[in-house]
Simulated scan of single mutants.
Amino acid sequence: MATEKPEPVKVLYCGVCGLPAEYCEFGPDFDKCKPWLREHAPDLYPDLFAGGETDVEKTAEQLQGVGISSGGGAASSGGEASASKQEEVKRLPGGKIKKKEKPEVVIEKIVRNKRKCVTVVKGLELFGVKLSDASKKLGKKFATGASVVKGPTEKEQIDVQGDISYDIVEFVTDTWPDVPESAIFFIEDGKKVPAA
């Protein structure tokens, strides 16, 4: 007597936000998902689509403004195609939009044992600075220990022993002229504050 294996569950994922179709209403872009859901999964939200075509037309116009085409048709002119490529945004899983960030250096002072401090420098590599060379220069300038470590987000950062957070801005801008002072920020009380 052989037992039959259960069939795997087939899940329909939304083409817009990437969530399972029945969870689109809980995602961040449900209005943008509606045209896709109407076409691919009309039985999931029958009361939602009873209103008519106007809702779908509005969301289709919004999607084209973001750079996502709702119909799959080609743009009518070359100018429109280049404009939509420029406006195209990177979408993360879950439908979140990744913003283009300009490079910046973030300096944070972390206090340990109520008297020992570590100054953390993040983002120098975005300006073409080699972190190993930068840590050597920082350690030599401030006569302290400095090392390149992986931070909590798996990005490399420089940890410098001691509280040098306000002396470091002048040193960074003098040593690496590619780093403008307007791109340097401090983390104070959990908020990002410009150094300038």
Score class of each variant (00 low, 15 high):
residue 2 A to F: 04
residue 6 P to G: 05
residue 8 P to K: 03
residue 9 V to Y: 01
residue 11 V to M: 05
residue 15 G to D: 01
residue 16 V to W: 00
residue 19 L to A: 03
residue 21 A to D: 01
residue 23 Y to F: 00
residue 27 G to E: 02
residue 28 P to G: 08
residue 32 K to G: 06
residue 33 C to D: 00
residue 34 K to R: 05
residue 37 L to Y: 04
residue 40 H to D: 07
residue 41 A to L: 00
residue 42 P to C: 00
residue 47 D to V: 01
residue 51 G to K: 04
residue 53 E to N: 02
residue 53 E to P: 03
residue 54 T to W: 04
residue 55 D to C: 02
residue 56 V to M: 15
residue 57 E to D: 13
residue 60 A to C: 14
residue 63 L to M: 15
residue 66 V to G: 07
residue 68 I to L: 11
residue 71 G to L: 12
residue 73 G to W: 12
residue 75 A to P: 09
residue 84 S to V: 13
residue 85 K to D: 05
residue 85 K to I: 06
residue 87 E to G: 09
residue 88 E to A: 12
residue 91 R to H: 14
residue 93 P to F: 02
residue 94 G to K: 01
residue 97 I to K: 10
residue 104 E to I: 07
residue 106 V to E: 15
residue 109 K to M: 11
residue 114 K to W: 10
residue 115 R to N: 09
residue 116 K to C: 01
residue 117 C to K: 09
residue 118 V to I: 12
residue 119 T to N: 08
residue 121 V to P: 10
residue 121 V to I: 13
residue 124 L to F: 09
residue 128 G to M: 12
residue 129 V to Y: 13
residue 129 V to K: 04
residue 130 K to L: 14
residue 131 L to C: 03
residue 132 S to C: 06
residue 133 D to R: 12
residue 133 D to A: 07
residue 135 S to Q: 14
residue 136 K to W: 14
residue 139 G to R: 11
residue 139 G to V: 01
residue 142 F to M: 02
residue 143 A to Y: 08
residue 146 A to S: 15
residue 148 V to H: 06
residue 149 V to C: 10
residue 155 K to G: 03
residue 160 V to G: 09
residue 163 D to N: 13
residue 169 V to S: 00
residue 170 E to P: 01
residue 171 F to V: 00
residue 173 T to E: 00
residue 174 D to E: 10
residue 179 V to Q: 03
residue 179 V to M: 04
residue 180 P to F: 01
residue 180 P to G: 01
residue 183 A to G: 06
residue 186 F to Y: 09
residue 189 D to R: 15
residue 190 G to T: 12
residue 193 V to G: 07
residue 195 A to W: 04
